[in-house]
Computed example of a mutant assay.
Amino acid sequence: MGEFLSVERRGKVAVLTMSKPESMNAIGTHADCDDIINTLRVLGEDRGVSAIILTGSGKAFSAGGNLKSMQERKGIGVLDQPDSTRANYRRGVQAVIRALMDCEIPMIAAVNGHAVGLGCDLACTCDIRIAAESAKFACSFIKVGIVPGDGGAWLLQRVLGYPRAAELFLTGDRFDAQTAKDYGLVSEVVPDAELLERALAIADRIVCNPPRALRLTKRLLREAQHSRMSDILELSAAYQAIVHETADNREAINAFVEKRAPVFTGE
């Protein structure tokens, strides 16, 4: 893969670590964006991957965008004139968010430190979020005089509801891991040293299930965020017809009837 993400395979789990601790894992270049997008594409094509853990190196999960690049008007943000800036956002950071949202592999955010601005929104694209005790969060675009240009205005209110999301975006306030749990942004807060172990334990409870059904279940959950019930019923019937023809479905039923542990192959 590229230089921004390191990838470690642990059986059916892929651990993705943002690996620029010197910049607090800020995303500053199109190469950073392309690395994330290409990594997700490669993993998505690998039927041996059934869960992804996204975390950061050093003291940050991700500090979001690179302010130095913004100051110099280069990188993935502001450029020489508005139309160029608009196109720059679309091909860079917004393409990253689209790739994360389109990923059908269940994703766990293991927030190890500061998750600020875009960094917080990256965590919101994941299906499950847990945090280390030292983690800090902020939806702090307003503090540098910009709006959430990465889709965060859509993401956060679907996690927290409109009133809380509005409070966080309009104040830009920082908050700690326990507050994040109280808000419902993360489901667990664990000691720093136990974060990855806990994320892997959750991933193990996911990857023991049939791979095809896992991916289609996640797709249904994603589509249900913006679809009518009638549309989801139709999509559910179609997906159900697909998984009923898998070998893993037959194995699951046979194992249940025969009172034994199932052995799934992904077929």
Rank of each mutant, 00 (worst) to 15 (best):
Gly2Gln: 12
Ser6Thr: 11
Arg9Val: 00
Gly11Tyr: 04
Gly11Thr: 12
Val13Arg: 06
Leu16Asn: 08
Thr17Cys: 01
Ser19Trp: 12
Ser19Ile: 11
Lys20Ser: 13
Glu22Ala: 15
Asn25Trp: 10
Gly28Met: 11
Gly28Trp: 13
Thr29Arg: 01
Thr29Glu: 02
Ala31Arg: 14
Asp35Leu: 14
Leu43Cys: 13
Ser50Pro: 03
Ile53Glu: 02
Leu54Arg: 03
Gly56Thr: 08
Gly58Thr: 00
Ser62Leu: 10
Glu72Arg: 13
Arg73Ser: 09
Arg73Gln: 14
Lys74Met: 12
Gln81Glu: 13
Pro82Gln: 08
Asp83Pro: 00
Asp83Cys: 01
Thr85Ala: 10
Arg86Cys: 06
Ala87Gly: 12
Tyr89Ile: 06
Arg90Ser: 03
Arg90Val: 04
Gln94Tyr: 08
Leu100Phe: 12
Glu104Asn: 09
Pro106Glu: 08
Pro106Ala: 06
Ala110Val: 05
Val111Cys: 02
Val111Leu: 04
Ala115Cys: 06
Val116Arg: 08
Leu118Tyr: 09
Ala131Met: 02
Glu133Gly: 03
Lys136Ile: 13
Lys136Met: 15
Ala138Tyr: 09
Ala138Pro: 07
Cys139Thr: 14
Cys139Gly: 12
Pro148Met: 01
Gly149Gln: 02
Gly151Tyr: 03
Trp154Cys: 04
Leu156Phe: 06
Leu156Gln: 01
Arg158Gln: 14
Val159Gln: 08
Tyr162Asn: 13
Pro163Thr: 05
Ala165Leu: 10
Glu167Arg: 15
Leu170Trp: 06
Gly172Asp: 08
Leu185Ala: 05
Ser187Pro: 13
Ser187Val: 15
Leu196Cys: 04
Ala203Ile: 00
Ile206Thr: 09
Cys208Asp: 07
Pro210Ala: 07
Arg215Glu: 04
Leu216Asp: 04
Leu216Ile: 01
Leu220Val: 02
His226Met: 10
Met229Asp: 10
Met229Gln: 14
Ser230Trp: 04
Ser230Thr: 14
Leu233Arg: 12
Glu234Asn: 12
Leu235Ala: 10
Ser236Asn: 10
Ala237Gln: 10
Ala238Gly: 15
Gln240Pro: 02
Ala241Asn: 08
Asn249Gln: 04
Phe256Arg: 15
Phe256Gly: 14
Val257Ile: 14
Arg260Ala: 10
Ala261Pro: 11
Thr265Met: 00
Thr265Lys: 07
Glu267Phe: 08
